[in-house]
């Protein structure tokens, strides 16, 4: 584990009008590790990801990337830092082929003409680098791919750009057993290749299978961030559903994150 985290969030607040969705959220993400972000429906996981990727502006808090404070005002800023997101609903165009999708919006040119051979070669290299062997032709339309293959293309698209941090929002939600295993294996490989990975998932088996750390969100608050080896299934479920588990979480704050008592008050004060 490296000394400085790749991404560090401190005190992130985010409201949609009167609804505060994130409050005082802290998160650290290390290169070479899979950080699982867990939480119940509506806990604010997707919102947090959209704040990191520049889709939503934050109301308060700071973002450190590689130890330096940065401002991420747009998806372009995030991409420039090397942050790529694979969204819950896949952002692929069915009517385009694999290469066209992987380079969408960032096509390679020679002059004003699209440089198809170069794009095809780079796409092939990236897929080979991830040991992806499940697609027969790079020129097949994405609509002809299975769910797992599509997810694979979406992930490959994210790593094509020398990205440093890849965030996956429920990449296995719609997949069967075999394809889930395939995608998880790919997620693990990303981290083993030195990338920082944030994985959002509702599936505890997936989380425990691939993650190095687990960060739990409860009603918009980060209630715990611990090593996967230091926590049990049951504890994570408790954190997700009640916001606390033994020494972890809201009520008896162990000092792991700085938002203990006040946060607990505001919860008991009746959010929702």
């Amino acid at each position: 584990m490296s000394a400085t985290p790749l991404l560090e969030l401190r005190g992130i607040d985010k409201s949609f009008g009167p609804v505060q969705v994130l409050r005082d959220v802290a998160l650290t993400v290390h290169p070479g590790e899979v950080t699982a972000l867990v939480g119940d429906n509506g806990a604010g996981k997707s919102t947090l990801v959209k704040c990191i990727s520049g889709i939503y502006p934050t109301d308060a808090g700071e973002v450190l990337f590689n130890g330096e404070q940065v401002h991420i005002g747009s998806p372009r800023d995030a991409a420039a830092l090397g942050i790529e997101v694979v969204y819950q609903d896949l952002a692929l165009c069915d009517n385009l082929d694999i290469v066209q999708n992987m380079f969408l919006g960032r096509e390679k040119h020679s002059g004003i003409v699209l440089d198809e051979p170069t794009m095809e070669q780079l796409a092939a290299e990236t897929l080979a680098g991830l040991s992806i062997r499940t697609v027969t032709s790079l020129r097949q339309h994405v609509s002809s791919l299975s769910g797992g293959q599509r997810q694979t293309v979406a992930i490959a698209k994210a790593v094509l750009w020398n990205s440093k941090l890849v965030i996956l929002d429920e990449p296995t939600a719609a997949l069967g057993v075999a394809q889930t295993a395939q995608v998880l294996e790919l997620v693990r490989r990303l981290a083993d290749n030195g990338l920082a990975v944030v994985l959002i998932s509702h599936n505890m088996n997936d989380v425990f299978a691939v993650s190095d750390r687990i960060a739990a969100l409860y009603l918009g608050q980060m209630v715990a961030q611990v090593k996967t080896t230091d926590i049990t299934h049951a504890q994570v479920v408790e954190l997700i559903t009640a916001g606390r588990s033994g020494g972890l979480g809201l009520a008896t704050d162990p000092g792991g994150n700085g938002d203990g008592p006040q946060a607990a008050d505001s919860i008991s004060g009746g959010v929702r």
Partner: peptide
């Protein structure tokens, strides 16, 4: 083609 195929995907691709 991208906008015609999936407008949201195109938007997210910048």
């Amino acid at each position: 083609y991208a906008v015609g195929g999936n407008r949201e995907a195109a938007r997210r691709a910048g």
